[in-house]
Simulated assay, not measured.
Amino acid sequence: MSGLGERWLTAAYRGDAWLTLLRPLEALYRWAVARRAAAYASGRRQAWSAPVPVIVVGNLTLGGTGKSPLVAWLVERLAAQGWRPGILSRGYGGKGADHPLLVEPATPAAACGDEPRMLADQTGVPVVVDPDRPRGARRLLEVGCDILVSDDGLQHLALARDLELVVVDGARGFGNGRCLPAGPLRESLSRLDSVDAILVNGEPQGPLPLAARRMALAPSAWRRLGDGRRYPIAPPPFSGPVHAVAGIGRPQRFFETLEALGIEVIAHPFGDHHAFRADELRFADHRPLVMTAKDAVKCRDLAPGESWVLEVEASPEPAFVAWLDQRLAALKARPVSGNDDTNPRAGVMPAHPPT
């Protein structure tokens, strides 16, 4: 996101008064979103239904919420239960021209996007990038996946889904509660009535739906960028102040995490999905450099010698984990047909959040 876009997003979350000027455009945006949803609900547009379960992890707002760590946690739990999961992504920022793109060990982040590259490295499961979600889903089926996780797929209605999980940033919530461009919402807040689960990342700073569950992002290890060697969180494998760079949806969350670990931070925030240059990672004082896992996949050949990656893991509350395991058991036990007229999943959106 550009500097202008970042300033607009900050204003949207603060609820700056000048955004009221954009409400006529917001009304047009809401109309377009509602018209598209109605087309799928009525059958005028048909969602493709995979012959295996599909779980969507998404958000209702622009900006980072912590959904990618939840995707990594989810596929690891699925694999531990005997599933063969695959991840489907839009691949924002990737420049690859051929789709569907199966992310291989040698696929650069520049081709597939930083989040798909990160998720492939972290989980080891198949990751496919394709703006056409049904086409990408079919590629995952070809490599043997028996359950699909669609990252940031809430608004991609062309792919039918069995579960919808929405992640909310506890600190920022839903901003001023308005839709684009007068606010940060991709869809109206009423959309939350039809999702299966709402997870709040971090301590909520305002009112949230009663059905919301809690999750946290917990630091799990330090990784040296150069050789990939991992170290325990405490004590950190470096000393003194560090230069912290973050090109994620909310860089301040990363800086706050470092400070909570007792690290003195010299903060360098960048826009989400920022394409780093070598000069942006080199500082005259030669202090250690610390970055996120998402940024690290783009900086392997750019960063100086003493560069470190803070690995984090999603930690959902036990009540959500128990609910999820029940839903997964039901999905595993249920026979599923393909995308035909007798398939009850085709084009059907889930309707009930957990209680």
Results as ranks from 00 to 15, higher is better:
L148R: 14
P131R: 13
Q155S: 03
R139N: 04
I147G: 06
L140R: 02
L163H: 11
L141N: 02
F174K: 00
P134Q: 13
V166Y: 05
D146T: 01
F174W: 02
G177K: 00
G173W: 14
P131M: 13
D152H: 05
V166M: 10
P181M: 03
V143I: 03
R178H: 13
G153T: 05
E164F: 14
G170A: 01
L180P: 02
A171H: 15
A160W: 11
P181H: 05
C145T: 03
R133E: 03
R133K: 04
V149E: 03
R161G: 11
D169C: 10
A158C: 11
L180N: 08
G173D: 12
D162V: 09
V127S: 04
S150I: 10
R139F: 02
D151H: 14
G153H: 02
D132W: 09
A158F: 14
N176D: 06
G136D: 04
L159N: 12
G153Y: 12
R139A: 11
P134R: 12
R135N: 05
G177R: 03
D132L: 03
I147R: 13
C179V: 06
N176G: 06
V168E: 01
R178P: 10
G170K: 00
A171V: 13
G175A: 07
L165M: 15
L157A: 15
V127R: 10
V168C: 09
P134T: 08
R161Y: 07
G177Q: 02
V149Q: 04
G173S: 14
I147A: 09
I147S: 09
G170H: 00
G136I: 07
L140N: 05
P181K: 09
L165T: 12
R135T: 05
R135H: 02
D162E: 09
L141T: 02
A158E: 15
L154F: 14
G153P: 00
P134D: 10
R139G: 03
D162S: 02
G136Q: 05
L157D: 14
V129I: 06
E164N: 02
D152A: 01
V167E: 14
A182T: 01
F174P: 03
V127E: 04
L140A: 09
P134S: 09
S150E: 04
A160R: 12
R135Q: 05
R161S: 11
Q155I: 10
G177S: 00
R133C: 00
V129M: 05
S150D: 09
R138P: 08
D132K: 10
S150K: 12
L141M: 05
R172H: 04
G144P: 01
D169A: 06
R133L: 07
A137E: 12
A182W: 00
A158I: 15
C145G: 01
V168L: 13
A158G: 06
G175T: 08
V167S: 12
L157N: 14
C145R: 07
